[in-house]
Amino acid sequence: MDIRNYLDSTYLKTAAQANLSETENKVIVKNAIQEAIDCQFKLIMIRPEQVALAKEMIQKAKSKVTIGTVIDFPEGEGSLSNKLKEANEAVINGADDLDFVINYKAFKNGLIDEVKQQVIACTQLGLAHHKIVKWIIEVAALDTHQIVQLTVLIKNTIISNFSEKEYEKVFVKSSTGFYKTTDSAPNGATLPTIKLMLENSFPLPVKAAGGVRTYDEAMEMIQLGVKRIGTSSAKAIVTGEISNSDY
């Protein structure tokens, strides 16, 4: 098993979030893309406005690294039309994976039909263009019962509206990594939350995102059954180094 095949190497900070100039942040983005190429990670996960740059660099290097981006990130509160517009632009620019933030606030407020409608329409767009679709449920914003409910809602919506051969292309993903928790609680993937997701997502695969920073932690997630890991510590995971990343 090559652990690199599970790693979505991730850099999603804006210049403002990183407390850098746009030029300085672009250097970090380029370095992240180049590292993914050099290390042959499964995927580089970046903001939508950086997808075209990644496509250019990857094609020039004749690399097999795929490109992922986030849609309606990180709050997930955008309208369906905005989600579709952003996703379509990402497809045009060369994205291979579309990681949508589900409207978890609408779900918590009982607007189940609205959430289902977004899952159906956005998944249809992604699959129609032969893309991988992932639904970020933001586990840190949910209690245990809600994690189960939202995972099951996505699973049942996909099973009811898409063919069996497409299930493997639609993931349930744990976290954005940007949710602000209280009392320093984890805002990403934890073993208990990933176990809950895996128990309730089948036959859809699960992506563990946020908080996986070492080889041992990554292997623990893979042995549980996750198919992808979103991390800004991909190189450290592969080399066994210590990561000081916050995602």
Results as ranks from 00 to 15, higher is better:
Leu20Trp: 00
Leu12Asn: 13
Arg4His: 08
Leu53Lys: 05
Met57Val: 06
Ala32Lys: 10
Glu22Pro: 02
Gln40Trp: 01
Pro48Gln: 09
Glu56Phe: 00
Ala54Ser: 08
Ser9Pro: 00
Val65Asn: 03
Ala54Gln: 09
Lys26Tyr: 04
Asn31Thr: 10
Gly68Arg: 07
Leu53Gly: 10
Ala32Phe: 12
Lys62Glu: 13
Asn5Glu: 15
Leu43Met: 15
Ser21Ile: 08
Thr23Lys: 08
Asn31Trp: 04
Lys62Arg: 11
Asp72Lys: 07
Ser63Arg: 07
Glu56Asn: 09
Thr14Cys: 00
Leu7Gln: 06
Thr14His: 02
Ser9Glu: 11
Lys26Ala: 12
Asp72Ile: 05
Val51Arg: 05
Val65Pro: 00
Leu12Met: 10
Ile71Cys: 03
Ala15Met: 05
Gln17Gly: 15
Gln34Ala: 08
Cys39Gly: 05
Leu53Gln: 14
Leu7Pro: 04
Ile37Thr: 08
Glu56Pro: 00
Leu12Val: 03
Gln40Ser: 12
Arg4Val: 13
Ile44Glu: 03
Thr69Ile: 10
Ala16Tyr: 02
Ile44Tyr: 01
Val70Thr: 13
Gln50Thr: 08
Leu7Gly: 05
Lys55Ala: 14
Gln17Glu: 15
Lys13Asn: 15
Asn19Pro: 00
Ala15Lys: 03
Asn25Gln: 12
Thr66Asp: 06
Asp72Thr: 10
Pro48Arg: 10
Val70Trp: 05
Ala18Leu: 09
Ile71Tyr: 02
Ile3Gln: 07
